[in-house]
Measured scan of single mutants.
Amino acid sequence: NQASVVANQLIPISTALTLVMMRSEVVTPVGIPAEDIPRLVSMTVNRAVPLGTTLMPDMVKGYA
C-alpha cells in the first residue's frame, strides 16, 4: 500500500504548501504519492483543502 499526501490542517485556496501542512498516510483513494512531498513545497492549491483530505493531482497548480 502506497502512502499518499494528506492535509495536516485546513489549507486555504491559493495557499503555498509547506512541509507542516502535509503528512503521509495510506488512504483510499490513493492521491499524490508521499514521496512527492518535497516537490509540492511552494506549489499552491487551487481550492480549499480541509484537514484530513487526500491531496489529488488536480488540487495543486502545476503538479499534474
Rank of each mutant, 00 (worst) to 15 (best):
L19N: 05
V49K: 00
A34I: 07
I37T: 07
S24D: 07
S42E: 09
P50A: 11
M56R: 12
R47P: 02
I13Y: 12
G52I: 03
G62I: 04
V27C: 06
N8P: 02
A48W: 09
T53D: 13
D58T: 10
I13C: 15
Q2H: 11
S4C: 06
P33S: 12
L51W: 09
S24G: 09
Q2F: 12
V5W: 03
K61L: 15
L10G: 10
N1H: 12
P29M: 04
L40Q: 00
T54D: 01
P33I: 09
V5M: 02
V60H: 02
T15A: 13
N46P: 01
T54Y: 03
A34E: 08
V49M: 04
I11P: 01
T53N: 11
P57S: 09
N1A: 15
Y63A: 03
T18G: 04
V60Y: 02
V45Y: 00
R23D: 04
L10N: 15
A3L: 10
K61G: 09
S42K: 12
D36T: 07
Y63D: 03
P57I: 06
M21L: 05
N1K: 08
G52M: 05
M43R: 07
V45H: 00
V49D: 01
T28S: 11
A3Q: 09
T15W: 08
M56P: 01
T15F: 06
V41N: 03
I13T: 15
N46S: 13
S24E: 09
V30R: 06
A7S: 10
V41P: 00
L40M: 06
I37Q: 04
V5Y: 03
L19P: 06
V6W: 03
A7K: 01
M59I: 05
V30K: 07
V49H: 01
P29R: 04
M59T: 06
K61H: 11
Q2Y: 12
M56I: 11
R47I: 09
D36H: 13
V30P: 11
V41W: 02
L40F: 02
P29K: 05
V30Q: 11
M56G: 05
S42N: 10
T15M: 08
L10E: 15
P29T: 06
I13E: 15
K61S: 12
D36L: 10
P50Y: 12
I32H: 01
T44H: 13
I32A: 01
N1G: 10
R39V: 11
A7H: 00
L55T: 01
T18Q: 08
Y63G: 04
Q2K: 08
V20D: 11
D58R: 07
V6Q: 02
V5T: 07
A34C: 07
V30E: 15
M56K: 10
M56S: 07
P29C: 05
L51K: 14
M56Q: 13
S42W: 11
M43Q: 06
A7F: 03
P29I: 06
L10K: 11
E25F: 06
D36E: 15
P29W: 04
V20L: 12
E35K: 08
A7N: 01
P50W: 08
V6P: 01
V6D: 00
V45D: 00
M22R: 00
V45A: 05
Q9L: 11
V30C: 07
G62V: 04
N8F: 04
P38T: 12
Q9W: 07
M21A: 05
R23Y: 05
L19Q: 07
A48S: 15
V26M: 11
I37R: 07
P33D: 05
M21G: 01
Y63M: 04
S42T: 14
T44G: 04
Y63C: 04
P12K: 07
V20S: 14
T54H: 02
P29A: 04
N1V: 15
E25V: 09
N8G: 07
V41R: 05
L51Q: 15
V41C: 07
L19H: 07
S4M: 02
S14C: 13
M21F: 03
I11K: 01
L40K: 00
A64W: 05
L40P: 00
A7L: 03
T28K: 07
V6I: 12
L10R: 13
N46T: 13
P57N: 05
R47K: 12
R47H: 09
M56W: 05
I32M: 03
G31L: 03
I13R: 12
T18N: 05
A34F: 06
I37K: 05
L17P: 01
Q9I: 10
D58A: 10
V41E: 05
G62W: 08
R39M: 11
A3M: 12
M59C: 05
T28V: 13
M59E: 02
G62L: 06
M21I: 03
V30F: 14
S4A: 03
M43V: 04
E35G: 08
M56C: 10
V6T: 06
Y63L: 05
S42G: 14
G31Q: 03
V26F: 12
G62Q: 10
Q2W: 12
N1F: 14
G62F: 09
G52P: 01
L40V: 05
A34N: 06
P29L: 04
V49I: 13
V5H: 01
L17W: 03
S42Q: 09
P29V: 06
V20G: 12
P57E: 07
V5P: 03
I32W: 02
L40C: 03
E35W: 11
V5K: 02
V60G: 02
P50C: 08
M22L: 11
I11W: 02
N46F: 07
P38W: 11
V41D: 02
P50R: 09
